[in-house]
Nucleic acid binder design. Sequence first.
DNA 1: AGAAGTTCTTGATCCGGATCAAGTTCTTTT
DNA 2: AAAAGAACTTGATCCGGATCAAGAACTTCT
Lengths: 225, 225
Amino acid sequence: MGLTPEDVERLDSIIKRGRPYHRGDHLYRGGDKFHSLRVITSGSVKTYSPNEDGGEQVLGFHLPGELIGLDAIQDDNHTCSAIALETTAVCEIPFSQLESLSSIMPSLQHQMYRLLSREIGQDTEMLTLLGKKSAEERLATFLLSSSERFKQRGFSASDFFLSMSRHEIGNYLGLAVETVSRLFTRFQDENLLHVERKHVQLLDIPRLYEIVQGADRAKPSQSRI
Amino acid sequence: MGLTPEDVERLDSIIKRGRPYHRGDHLYRGGDKFHSLRVITSGSVKTYSPNEDGGEQVLGFHLPGELIGLDAIQDDNHTCSAIALETTAVCEIPFSQLESLSSIMPSLQHQMYRLLSREIGQDTEMLTLLGKKSAEERLATFLLSSSERFKQRGFSASDFFLSMSRHEIGNYLGLAVETVSRLFTRFQDENLLHVERKHVQLLDIPRLYEIVQGADRAKPSQSRI
DNA sequence: AGAAGTTCTTGATCCGGATCAAGTTCTTTT
DNA sequence: AAAAGAACTTGATCCGGATCAAGAACTTCT
């Protein structure tokens, strides 16, 4: 991602491979002292912010190759919690060392700025999702985003396992569990997908993209006369 | 903010003071080439992302001292638009120069990382707001956040003018204009505030904080037996 | 294997806030 | 100052999705 092989080697020298986590183990909790960013190497992770009254807001689901902990640089404390959704391996990158290294490696510094900026961009997309989209659009967006991310990692874009529960999907999308469940059923009835428990097969990806765009809402279409 | 006076001087040397913008002028639009971050020095700005079907999602309102454009570092293009809500002055900080400078000034680099991380943290707070809070909690949160930001800048925390319209507040909070209007009326009836057009006076800030916390919801209280 | 606890699904009902509809006040234009 | 157009408020109605309730499928524990 824009680094020379020797850059990568130097970066590699500060990375620590941690022990694997099991389903339900916390990688860190909100309030913990921040010292390392983490890259997921296998498995999957949920980040969430525990809110005052016992509930939680799921902030994201993270797959291999993704970096988590960027929100904690702010004030040296984790502002949210991260928990393994299945057996998961991560690498730790001590932030102070990364910072020193980026000081003498402009390409790394540039990459860090881009990474942080990308995170902001993703969050703002999510704001639009939660602020303006219907339940149906939200779930379709979630499924296609999952699909794209699996594809990027060399897995099937149309046949995958979701490691999180319906409850967690609902929480993430700002919907009740029941709504998520009903939508899965409806999407299946409409032959958009086939779902059985955590196993999802997308059958009509183009149509799902139409739904994401808000097709069959207010303005029935923008192409056809 | 953690920089020595000489650091500040060096930073100052790359800052360009731009001409003032008038109400309705764009500072930049989504898709524009990114070259500079901008610090608002007076006035106020709305950022928003124009979404496919003509509508828009308001992403934030920005006051003097705040930095905008961090989302554009990602891929050298602005991903959202920024428009002046009133007569507004900004400073431009060419990003490539800032990047070079931060390479030789570790304190500046550190500050940049923190700034980017803070932005992420603010976005995730907003995700919780849009994902879980009622209309009443959203507006109370918005009012108190405005209050705190005015206070920080040396203005009154309880008596201020909002430069954005009801429509824009609603869009930002994921609510219809009518809901925002009704809530202002209700808050006034309950003596929480006095509002006249854009002029807001907060009369019972502690009670507003209780509302933000989700008081008088599900669990009636957490203290009283 | 049986018991107990989860997670998921499905149905019935309810409600917060959207939408629709008008009227009012403020602002801008001429 | 009159006219036109925004912005805001208020009322009436509607609906998407939450909540409540119960059963079914799956998992985990003993």
